[in-house]
Design a protein around this nucleic acid. Structure first.
Lengths: 205, 205, 205, 205
DNA sequence: AATGAATGAGGTTTCATTCAT
DNA sequence: AATGAATGAAACCTCATTCAT
């Protein structure tokens, strides 16, 4: 039997319903995050997620048409936070300042939930996401291109490639640090900057 | 997907004593590589591998005590090639030359079979390998530490961390290039060097 | 034959909450009984049980976490009937009357489904059951100790051993009769009493 | 392929060959006993037996046409020892003396290898043995009939049934004692006699 | 005779997904 | 809308038995 029967509800009828749905969706997505963190990709099952979320599998499938769609939603949720911070970083006046802020955002993102971040990177690479999900993923790419175009940075032959590889460097180091359990984020930021700026052929300083 | 036990002994269960066996083992491992490339982690099943190898599942399990052991053997096979090249790189007289050679080796390794390399990186991180398998993985780490200790490079506070992150940078860029299908390995080598040397605070030169 | 793990939790995995479930559980257990009777231990497979029960394997595993758990449930179901009758037997005022009633109960139990009774004895000895299941098995033992302590019977040095062996004698003869197809339960009861009372050093009377 | 090819048979040449074969057979049967004791019915596999015996599976199948035939041979080997002792017991002049000697023989038999004895009882009941194997099993039955016919014991209405049940009683108690680890065989013998003689309606003494 | 690599049917168990209630 | 029982394809792995060497 459902959590609460939900019948009568006059005047402001639909708003609350939506609110409830939104909350249910959020609960499910967070449960998915926990299960993924705790059990890894192979231990991640829709039944486990539903149980952890305190809803029935049926409800889960009411909100997400498939397991991969649920993972996609989780990717979107996690990436969105980083996108927001990346937008702010992009608002910095110089390219170097923007990149530094972006690196700091990536580190913050990674250290919030290291396991989750790592596993979702893998899922993101693996899944043929729908347009929405991919778009969120691409937003960061576009923003980095924008940063790299700022006037204090050298002009680029192939901005697309450079942005892609810059992100790869940054993620690579940060992931390694996260996996190993390093805790000194300031020192890490310095090292990541050295690598990124070196790659971009920006002299130190 | 049924769970595999994860208490892996990747060493072949039985030391093949006949020529036929050795060939069978090789055939199975190569089939595993192909299946992994073509179908990814989720599509990788022991039945599929056996069928592709042209042997029965029973034969597969005669040589590999579990699915994960098979993956372990594949990791060892692939990594061994890179280890050999890394040893040669390490024999260079200067650190910069050694690193450059190492980067070239990584690129060659990655471009041989990009999908495979990427997926095995993931498996390597995921699996709790036994001592033998891990050793192969650690060998590269140790060799990089050795390279970084050469006299032309700045002294390091934490060689372990630096080696780990250097490898992460190199793999990060190369993976990204491999995923995207970039073909110009010389240019790629230059970019990877810029990032690695920048990270190591070695001025361009 | 693939090994089952032997770390049994025979309690149903999920407490059935709907009437349908209860019936499904009962249907599965009865199907298990039939398959065991008809095909023996080696022919007893979860697929066969599910098919005979008219449910899918998945349903079977929804209620029983393993094959052995299912056997455990069957042991409990069958033994429970005998436990009830043994309790009634134990309520008799004299020890001799109680034992005679117990013997009659054992005979009735055995003749209801001779094959099943015999095979479950074997399973009971083989399986490392959890506390609940073992308790059902031990109840009979405790009740027999209680019977043997009644004042009309000789005092015992080692009630535990005596109860164990008394039950062994009774089961031994009855099993032999059941295996051979003897049908005269009254005569059988007499012979069992002679053996049991002889063992207990109670003169014929 | 049959148990042994058995064709030519010249003068002295074959003696060594036969000796070797006999020894191999004995080694395999003993290995079977050990595996059964250590791993139980479900862990008993022909591959394990061959390995333990230090021969190839192929050789095992040269001497035993099937797994069940191997178990049958083990049953015969174990039972034969008891048959010999039962024959000696049967040579006693009185029935009571014969039965007492038989009981002692059964106890000795059971305590030699308790696990093995118990598991083979089960196999014996389960398997549809070939004529040879069954005959060995029946020999004891016949010998007990002979004992029961001796003049100091009451005449029997149904010697077949009585012998069967007498053996069941004796085995029942002794098994129970063996399973529980009781070590005092003299006291056990006394209790078994009380039960058996009680069953046979022979007063104590 | 002996070997042991190979076979493959079959066993146990999981889990994404559906649908009657 | 929600529930959760039910489904069944498919995964991993074993082992009795065969047969080329």
């Amino acid at each position: 039997m459902p959590r609460s029967t939900n019948q009568t509800r006059p005047a402001p009828r639909k708003a609350p319903k939506q609110a409830r749905s939104l909350e249910t969706v959020a609960v499910i997505v967070e449960a998915a995050a926990r299960i993924l963190e705790e059990r890894g990709h192979d231990g991640f099952s829709t039944n486990a997620v539903a149980e952890r979320a305190g809803v029935s599998v049926g409800s889960l499938y009411q909100y997400f048409p498939s397991k991969d769609a649920l993972i996609g939603a989780l990717v979107v949720r996690e990436t969105s936070l980083l996108v927001e911070d990346t937008k702010k970083a992009c608002a910095q006046s110089t390219g170097q300042a923007a990149l530094s802020a972006f690196i700091a955002a990536c580190i913050a993102h990674q250290f919030r939930r290291p396991q989750l971040a790592r596993l979702l990177d893998y899922e993101e690479a693996r899944l043929p996401f729908d347009a929405d999900t991919q778009r969120v993923g691409r937003q960061i790419h576009e923003l980095v291109i924008e940063m790299l175009a700022k006037s204090d940075l050298p002009a680029l032959e192939d901005p697309d490639l450079t942005a892609r590889e810059t992100v790869a460097i940054i993620k690579g180091i940060i992931d390694a640090a996260g996996q190993h359990g390093d805790a000194d984020t300031d020192a890490l930021a310095g090292r990541v900057q050295r690598a990124a700026f070196g790659y971009l052929a920006i002299g130190p300083g």
